[in-house]
Design a protein around this nucleic acid. Structure first.
Lengths: 351, 351
DNA sequence: CTGAAAGCGCTTACAG
DNA sequence: CTGAAAGCGCTTACAG
């Protein structure tokens, strides 16, 4: 620290000066006890005289003493912080995962460092280094798609991969069960009387698109049905694709009675085309999709029946696994978590 | 620390044991120098023999030494961390703001603690206490709407309010300029030849809804025009409202040639109704809206011309102000940041 | 050029 | 019941 002796500088500093943050030493001095006693009194340790404790506590409150967590962490060897390293901040995975994690840790128990690597390995290493330097107790890594991502390898702290699994089976990964999601969609449609079911898929380069298709086919087979149209139309995760695919689907399969769409965006496009063609939803054709993205699913006419991927539950599970690992009970492998069907008017009249 | 001597516990611990994180002491010992010299060598201080420095640096790399930021912060009195206290995690304000802030701080320079108070004052106090305990250097508070929110008062660290301004003018607040946004919409429509412009507003209990309306009226007046339909229809931020309001608008003002919608959701509803009524967009009626929410604005037919509220710029500005305040140069008052027009096909054919 | 010492703010045995 | 002392991991004058 260099001495700042210029008068103007001092004056400027004084204007904006914040009083030094009080320390335990201040509390002790003002309460007339030793630092050790002040510490014990504030932390509810035994062997402190009730009067002494009261005096210390009152003093601490009076000067708004807040213990310095850095010093406490240095002693304890644990910081009560975790890192959340994401590649999907603009997307919609990280945030529900973060909220679920916050819930699981218990409000205020753990603080979360959030960093966005933006799909850039260099930036990821940079953030990782900063997090490790801050001695996080654990790390949750969130990806933007369910395809496997490179493992970060052996770090000084436990890691849980959420949404995008690690490519190393020795790591602990948590993903939504997209196959199960496909089952749910088909089972719901079959249960509500549909038998000629088509599937408009998303981008086939995504594991999620293929896994959902697998689930749909499995469930259809289990119901003694086949996919109407023979094969899934894969395209992109957009309304544009939903409109185009629905056009060609209606041309080739005018008798279909249900369409499963790979995402809510695709379903919004499908609804548009069905309406333009004068096809009644859900009377003539039911529409179901995946993601249950509120803004899309509840704005349409009718509203969309959709499979929710339960990202918050994913976040809670990730936090659970992380706490277990911090306590020395590590788990590994990829665990797929169940999804949830949300029924609305696009499959059931008046729902 | 209690001694754990049970054999089974030791065995279990050993199985999962992580090697103790190396410290500067380890580096010093292995390099055969003092801790002080090791520190100087790694931090690029003068007066270290080149050979010594090389040996220390190599040793540090070999054992993957990462300096403990907690210890450094304790000394420095600064932690290089900031808090981002939000009430809008599920929403779409916080994340762009966070990204802008990350950019402004410079990747890895500052780490961000993200907490969501979920509009709950108790939870907010709880998080605030945790953040202060962790000795953040500054705090950004993000709200869910542009209406003023209660000030947090005088804290031990500088605070910048983003999106939702503080109700105390002594605080530093940054908001998007919704009046300016209204100007932009009108000026664009007028410039492209529209003269009979109506406005379907959002929820009138929102400051943003009223401010946009104010801007629209101001700009219309400046162009020598009035609001077609006489008064703004306020409702809610939904597609449903957009559809309903457009119905009644078309019934009462069949000659209008442009509709400004209070949000992209409302505009999506308006487009639906216009299409059903056989009104061509943008040929007969242009549609412009606010928010520029990609998922909504780019999925429609035609795509939506929309005013972007520039949340990332807001985040960058908030980070700038915070860094200034940390350096002792505080600013105060509410500053409104400009918005940006994104032209697409709903106002200009083929755009 | 190198290292012993003090200190950041706290907690915890340990003596009294 | 209370307090002096050691120590968490680091940095920075200060002596040598």
């Amino acid at each position: 620290m260099d001495a700042r002796t210029s008068e103007t500088e001092d004056a400027a500093a004084a204007q904006h000066a914040r009083p030094r943050t009080p320390t335990l030493k201040d509390v002790a001095r003002l309460a007339g006890v030793s630092i050790a006693t002040a510490s014990k009194a504030l932390n509810g340790r035994d062997n402190v005289h009730p009067d002494t404790r009261r005096r210390v506590v009152e003093t601490a409150e009076r000067i708004s003493f807040t213990p310095n967590s850095l010093a406490q962490s240095l002693l304890a060897g644990q910081t009560g912080t975790v890192g959340l390293l994401t590649n999907d901040l603009e997307g919609r995975f990280s945030i529900p995962v973060l909220m679920g994690a916050e819930d699981a840790f218990g409000a205020g128990k753990m603080s979360v460092f959030l960093c966005d690597a933006r799909e850039d390995a260099i930036r990821e290493q940079y953030h990782l280094h900063a997090l490790l330097g801050r001695r996080i107790d654990g790390l949750i890594v969130v990806g933007s798609r369910t395809d496997p991502r490179p493992s970060l390898g052996d770090l000084a702290v436990p890691v849980v991969y959420a949404y995008a699994p690690s490519d190393d089976p020795a790591d602990c990964s948590l993903v939504p069960d997209n196959v199960h999601a496909g089952h749910l969609a088909v089972e719901h449609l079959v249960a509500t009387g549909r038998t000629r079911i088509a599937h408009i898929g998303g981008d086939r380069t995504y594991d999620a698109a293929r896994a959902r298709d697998t689930g749909i086919r499995e469930a259809l087979a289990a119901a003694g049905l086949g996919l109407t149209g023979g094969e899934t139309l894969f395209g992109s995760w957009s309304e544009q694709w939903g409109r185009a695919a629905t056009q060609s689907l209606l041309d080739r399969q005018p008798d279909l009675d249900a369409i499963i769409c790979g995402s809510d965006q695709i379903a919004r496009g499908a609804l548009d085309t069905l309406r333009e063609r004068g096809v009644q939803v859900p009377r003539q054709v039911a529409v179901a999709s995946f993601d249950n993205w509120q803004i899309l699913a509840t704005g349409s006419r009718p509203q969309l029946t959709s499979i929710d991927m339960c990202f918050e539950a994913l976040g809670r599970a990730a936090a659970d696994r992380l706490v277990q690992a911090i306590d020395g009970r590590r788990t590994h492998g990829v665990e797929a978590l169940p999804c949830r069907l949300e029924v609305r008017g696009s499959t059931v009249e008046g729902a």
